[in-house]
Write a protein that binds this DNA or RNA. Structure first.
Lengths: 258, 258
DNA sequence: AACGCTGTTCCGCTAAGCGAAACAGCGTTA
DNA sequence: TAACGCTGTTTCGCTTAGCGGAACAGCGTT
């Protein structure tokens, strides 16, 4: 959301520096950061020094490279105990994860991606645990993304989806009209399935969660490796996940079934 | 660490605003933040607007109160795939969590607190899952804190420990000389135990992890509710956790036993 | 030795950021 | 109903915080 009041440029720059790191590129130098965010090296250096003072950034003394610091974990921890949705969802999704013995997440739409807010999984099932909470994922290549945007207007969908749908695997839907058809089906059936669309070997099922106004605000997603979480098994657990979503939506004040 | 180069005041202020939120007080108003961080309201307002633009902060439109935003979860996610320690520790601690069927964490010392970097637990065991990764805890009232500082010099211990040891439960050690005795025992036995010291009903065992230089850089901690994770059971699993720590330390290049 | 890159420091300049004061709105009280 | 006390938000004159180009120190490579 664009605020009318002037913003603080130094803070905007500091945040864009924080955002320049990724899970796939956790370590960057001053020059590389300068190039990526378009800020002169001396300015980047000063901003990094400030972030380092508060442990949002740390520097490897051997290589001189910078990385995100653990104070971000602390701030994220403080950020997590937040909404009614999360408080209501936790016991219900924990129960579902125990029943299914697969990875269960609570996922929301944020700008043009979906992001996991909560994760429930057994340690032996957490093969892909790294990165789940806080992980941003493309809307078109995930069951979560489809489960949420299927219930948006066409105008909203157009604003959310990029013009070029990136293909992450051979199974990713990269054709806009095919995606549109898929979204109509999601709307009709009340759930979305993604079979190896985001990553090879990863299957997922997602069901939307509605608030008291009937608006889709999040979804429950179940995922696992395709050798275990087979297409057949995905279909078997649909009733269970639909029921969980209905229970959650109901506790949030939603009064209609599908 | 104090940098000599001048820091950016606006960024320092923005970070102190982020730090003013806590798990126990997730929502604050402009005036309250202004009082807490000692910055005039108009300045706080402008800094909040900037942080909101990047979703590090969000404002409840109904109440006007502010809370930490989900971009912090995204940044924390990107921060997590970081050190050799974590990469080495993950499979080993996952295995331990499966064997023990209790909550297992990887914990480090950060300034004057201990902070959990990784968490492994079954969904049905995650009663206290909320807040673990990124949670800051007092050194003197946790098995993790004791397991780590026991191997510091007395000078370092003095710098780490607050002059007044806060009592969180009747069992918390709040006397400096008693704590000193406890730390000597930890050093001798190679592990630390905290029985209901941080929270009533919470027991924990922690064992230090050494790097290739023999320096204690983290610890493995196992915790659970005292009705299940009884004192008797805590003692039963000591060999298992010691073995895990030895394995971890060994993979980090440490070449001696205790 | 020269080169190319890195992270880091310096310092003159200027506009970004500050903060006091005021405003608009809301809930409470008399 | 008016006054009050608090909130979040806006304005604008002032000044120094922050900028960024240039230079430096160090390191690895040729």
């Amino acid at each position: 959301m664009s605020k009318r009041s002037p913003l603080v440029q130094s803070v905007e720059r500091a945040v864009s520096i924080l955002k320049s790191f990724s899970a796939s590129e956790p370590e960057l130098g001053v020059g590389e950061i300068s190039r990526r965010v378009g800020i002169p090296k001396s300015t980047v250096f000063r901003l990094l020094a400030t972030l380092e003072e508060d442990n949002l950034i740390s520097q490897d003394p051997d290589t001189g490279l910078y990385r995100l610091g653990i104070e971000l974990l602390v701030l994220a921890n403080n950020a997590m105990i937040s909404t009614d949705l999360q408080r209501v969802a936790r016991p219900i999704l924990r129960h579902l994860a125990r029943d299914l013995n697969e990875t269960v997440t609570l996922t929301i739409l944020d700008a043009q991606d979906v992001v996991n807010l909560e994760l429930f999984a057994s340690p032996e099932r957490m093969i892909m645990r790294v990165g789940w909470v806080g992980r941003r994922m493309p809307v078109h290549a995930t069951s979560s993304g489809k489960a949420i945007i299927a219930f948006k207007t066409e105008e909203e969908q157009k604003n959310i989806l990029p013009s070029e749908l990136e293909g992450y695997t051979p199974q990713t839907v990269t054709n806009h009209s095919q995606l549109k058809t898929d979204l109509l089906q999601v709307r009709e059936k009340g759930y979305a399935i993604a079979l190896e669309e985001l990553e090879s070997g990863l299957n997922a099922l997602a069901v939307p969660i509605r608030n008291h106004e009937g608006e889709v605000i999040a979804c429950v997603s179940v995922s696992g490796p395709s050798h275990r979480f087979t297409e057949k098994y995905v279909y078997e657990i649909i009733p269970s996940v639909l029921k969980t979503s209905t229970q959650l939506s109901s506790e949030l004040g939603y009064r209609n079934g599908f």
